[in-house]
Amino acid sequence: MSEVVDTTTWDALVIGGGAAGLTAGIVLARARFATMIVDGGPPRNAPAEAMHGFPTRDGMPPEEFVATGKAEFTGYGGILARASAVDARRTPEGEFEIRLSDGRLTRARSVLVATGITDELPDIPGLAQGWATVVHHCPHCHGYEVRGTNVAVIGGAMAAVSIHLAALMRRHTKSVTFCANGFEVSDADRQRLTAYGVRLVDGLVRAVAPEGDCARGELTAIRLEGGETVICDAIFVAPRPIPHDSILTALGANADPASGLIAVDSQGATSVPGLWAAGNVVNPRAQVVTAAGAGSTAAVNMTGWLLEKEMSAAGGDRP
């Protein structure tokens, strides 16, 4: 693909067109900064039927939320690029140069990365096929919808999160089975879960498969190594979050040594001047409403940073 140099130097380039990116783009466009959103594809929650926990948007399909946000952004003069960011560098002038998947090379004075994560599921046959229908990861997004049913939680790489998930689902139903799936549950955690009404099953999970019909829909069977089968209406699992942070690392943003995620301050600013990040790429637990709020916070901070640059360039900081 031949390279096309974009002659526009954007005030702000937002990479990612989900809740965080769209909210940030709208804030920046409304502040009359030349803003482009680079939208590389569907957001993390695209497979879900509906989103929850967002006032006035509860139950809205994710694709409708995104479409509405894009229309609002372009209505304020923002520009959408149907591409992904594949590489980035700082220019000698201190601007950002971003290479896009469509062959474009574009520049921006400031950048917000809101590229999200991939949920890496345990390698269990049949689990991925049920993702977002009978297999879920967020109790706050989907727990209420399966209240009163038979729920199973499968342990994964995120052991502590898995245990917390099993306990939290107990608030929605009396029937919760925690399939440890090979990781060691401490005696203390085992006692606490059992006392709280969670049934524990040891042994590896070998497969997940449909198992007949019932009034609530398709039942699911979790087949264990020892031959036991756990029948349930819904499965919850704590996947490993894989952040899409290659642009952030390419630009030299520092990571948090404890979490391994790119570090941001309370305003979403990274260690690189002019570079912000928001949403799941730096906070895997962020729901749609959380990501939108983080995008708004970052964008407001960006407007102040850009304004200060403009005032300094105009000589406004002279005595």
Rank of each mutant, 00 (worst) to 15 (best):
Pro273His: 04
Pro239Ala: 04
Ala299Val: 07
Val230Ile: 14
Thr220Val: 15
Ala188Thr: 15
Val230Ala: 05
Asp189Met: 05
Leu193Trp: 06
Pro284Ser: 06
Gly252Glu: 01
Val300Arg: 13
Ser259Val: 03
Ala278Asp: 08
Ile247Lys: 01
Thr220Asp: 05
Gly227Leu: 09
Ala263Lys: 08
Gly197Cys: 06
Gly268Ile: 03
Asp233Asn: 15
Ala188Asp: 15
Val264Trp: 02
Ile242Pro: 04
Ala234Ser: 15
Ala278Gly: 08
Glu225Leu: 09
Gly203Gln: 10
Ala269Trp: 05
Pro273Trp: 02
Ala263Phe: 08
Ala188Gly: 04
Ala195Pro: 01
Gly268Met: 04
Val201Arg: 13
Leu224Tyr: 06
Leu200Val: 03
Ile231Asn: 09
Thr194Val: 07
Val205Met: 04
Ala299Thr: 07
Val230Phe: 07
Leu200Gln: 02
Pro239His: 00
Gln267Glu: 14
His244Ile: 00
Glu310Phe: 08
Arg192Phe: 11
Gly226Arg: 10
Val272Tyr: 02
Leu275Gln: 06
Val272Leu: 03
Ser296Arg: 12
Gly268Lys: 02
Ser259Gln: 08
Thr290Lys: 07
Ala209Arg: 14
Ile242Asp: 11
Lys174Val: 08
Ile242Ala: 12
Asn181His: 12
Val237Cys: 01
Ala313Cys: 09
Gly182Cys: 09
Gly260Pro: 06
Gln287Ala: 14
Ala207Cys: 07
Val205Ser: 03
Val264His: 00
Met311Cys: 09
Gly217Asp: 01
Val198Pro: 01
Arg216Gly: 13
Val208Cys: 02
Ile222Gln: 04
Ala180Trp: 06
Thr220Leu: 09
Asn283Ala: 13
Gly274Pro: 07
Val289Lys: 03
Pro241Leu: 03
Arg216Tyr: 10
Thr290Arg: 06
Leu307Phe: 12
Ala255Tyr: 00
Ile231Ala: 05
Leu275Met: 08
Gly226Ile: 01
Glu310Val: 11
Cys232Leu: 05
Arg240Trp: 09
Leu219Trp: 05
Arg199Val: 11
Arg192Gln: 13
Ala195Tyr: 00
Phe178Trp: 06
Val237Met: 02
Leu204Arg: 13
Gly182Asp: 09
Ala269Phe: 07
Ala278Asn: 08
Ala291Gly: 15
Arg206Thr: 11
Leu261His: 07
Val185Cys: 05
Pro241Arg: 05
Ala180Arg: 13
Glu308Tyr: 06
Gly252Pro: 05
Thr249Arg: 12
Ala258Met: 08
Gly304Lys: 13
Val201Gln: 11
Met302His: 10
Val201Glu: 13
Ser296Asp: 11
Thr303Phe: 07
Thr249Met: 11
Met302Ser: 08
Ser266Pro: 00
Val208Arg: 01
Asp265Ala: 06
